[in-house]
Every structure is written in C-alpha cells, then in structure tokens.
Design a protein around this nucleic acid. Structure first.
Lengths: 143, 143
DNA sequence: TTATTTAGTTATCAAATGATAATCAAGAGG
DNA sequence: CCTCTTGATTATCATTTGATAACTAAATAA
C-alpha cells in the first residue's frame, strides 16, 4: 500500500474515531457546561495543573476566549485558579472537588460505554488494540 | 493491561487524534465555508451520492440544520441536488464540479501535511501503521 | 378516500464560538 | 528607571451552531 492509499485509509479512520468518540461521550457531560468547556475540563483533568496558555495551545483557542471560558468554569465552581508564587503573571488551573466529581462521573459513563463496545473482544483482541494504539500514537498521531 | 487502563489510553489517544486532525486540516478549507459545511462536504465527497437524511445521521445534526447548511452549499455552487425519480421526496446530493475542485485542493493540502508527518517512517513503519489502523477500525472504532 | 408516515423545508431563536482591540500587571533587560 | 515582553483579562462583535415549531409534498397504509 502506498502513501496515497494510506492517506485515504487515514481519512476514513479519523472520521470513524470522531464518530465513535461522539457516541461514547454524548450526554456524558452535564447540560450546564458547553462542549468547549467540557473539552477544557477533560484536558485539565488529565494534565493538571495547567496554565491558561497551555490550554489555549493544546485546545487551539485564543487567549481571550480561553480566559472567558475559564471564568465561566470558575463561576460554576468546577475549577480553581492559583497564582504562581514565583511568577505572579502565571496561573495554575486545577479541578475543584466539584470539578473532580463531575469529571469522575463523566468518565464513568464514557468508560461503561467503552466496555460495552469491547465486550466481545478477547484478551488477545485487547492486547492487539493496545499495541495498535501505541503504534499509531507514536508513529502517526505524535504531537 | 486491564480494561480500565486501556480506557485511559484510549482517552489520551482520541485526544491526540483530534489534535493531529486539526493540525492536518487547519486552513485547508476555503474561508468561505464553515467548519460544519466542510465536514458535510468531506462526507459527501467520500460517500456520494448521499441523501440529506444520511448526512444528518452521520454528522449528528438535525434535519432542519442539515437542510439549511445544504442550501448554503448549493448557493455557493459546491453541491447539486437531484430528486429521486422513484420517490420524489428523496434528494440525492453530489459535489458540483466546483465542489470537487475545492475538495481536491483541500485533500491535497491535507495529504501533503500527512506526508510530512510520516516522512521519516520506513516501509515497515508504514505497514505497521496500516495494520494498526485496520485493527482499531475493526475492533474498536467500528460503526 | 382518508389518515399516517416519511423526507425535507422554512422561520425563528438562543447560545456557543471565534476574532479583535484595548488594557493591565508582572517580569526581564538595558 | 524606562522599555519591552509575557501572561492574562475585559469588552465587544459577527458568525456559527443547535434547537424547536410549523409547514409542504409525496408515499404508504387503512
């Protein structure tokens, strides 16, 4: 298979990933937060503490919009901002207890749907899946 | 690795896929069409002819919004609507010549970025990537 | 023929998102 | 001290997106 054919396979694959991600995550977040806010929370959850700059880099959004959405998340008491004691321009963002709870619940919903999806997979299948993810993550979807 | 750990690996993986997809596709579409419109065009491009119902199923959008965005795409002369001769409620959507040209250019941009991304991959790496995609598509990201 | 269902449209609305300019405050370098 | 840069905020705006209700037209079932 040449690179051109592989590229088309990739296009179809990424469409599937997006589609299935949507299936797994739909309605997993509380209605009170928007999609973008949820993505930010997910990023914060796995990378905390993070700075607003890191969030806008990683989530491809502008600083003003990042700042606005973080304010909303803070109003909803889902995150906390801590000013860096060394460089007081910097802020560290963490989930609040409530934020942790919200994300825990969301992840549990998503995980249970994931388990349904792989319920018929054998131990060997799972090992293969894991290996495949490692390969793609390191050789194609590296950041 | 148990399913729980695999799930966390999946979360990180899908985030990478989204991120890299964004890298590959950013600015590939003309400014004159929105993100949603581009997604529709991409789906139409690979699946044509499609009906509006199929689009809204696949793209997770409502019929009214699908209809509205299709109208805009038609105004921009990127698609054509053909009424089914059997069942005149049905419409078949295809790319126009201009639509084909737009998508060809977009795909070329994206493909060239893809090639940059895998430029250091050996023949064996590429074969591994292909195999990994097949595994994930069939065992995890099936629709 | 008369419902009923299906496929799609139109109109309208609120909310989310993205972009820009102007601003502030803290650090860094001269 | 003064300037420049960095990290973040505020304000404002246009556009996109998502949701809903009301509707048309064609097919199907009763």
């Amino acid at each position: 298979m040449d690179k051109h054919a592989l590229f088309y396979k990739l296009v179809s694959f990424t469409a599937s990933v997006h589609h299935v991600t949507h299936e797994l995550t739909k309605n997993a977040k509380p209605d009170s937060i928007s999609q973008v806010q949820y993505s930010m929370l997910e990023y914060i959850a796995v990378s905390q503490p993070v700075t607003p700059s890191e969030i806008n880099q990683c989530q491809n959004m502008s600083m003003p919009n990042t700042s606005r959405e973080l304010s909303k998340l803070k109003e909803k008491k889902l995150i906390e901002k801590i000013t860096d004691s060394q460089d007081r321009r910097k802020q560290y963002i963490r989930l609040s207890h409530e934020g942790e709870a919200v994300m825990k619940e969301a992840f549990e919903t998503i995980e249970s749907r994931f388990r349904e999806r792989v319920q018929h997979a054998s131990k060997e299948d799972l090992a293969e899946i894991e290996r495949a993810i490692d390969i793609l993550q390191s050789k194609l979807f590296y950041r």
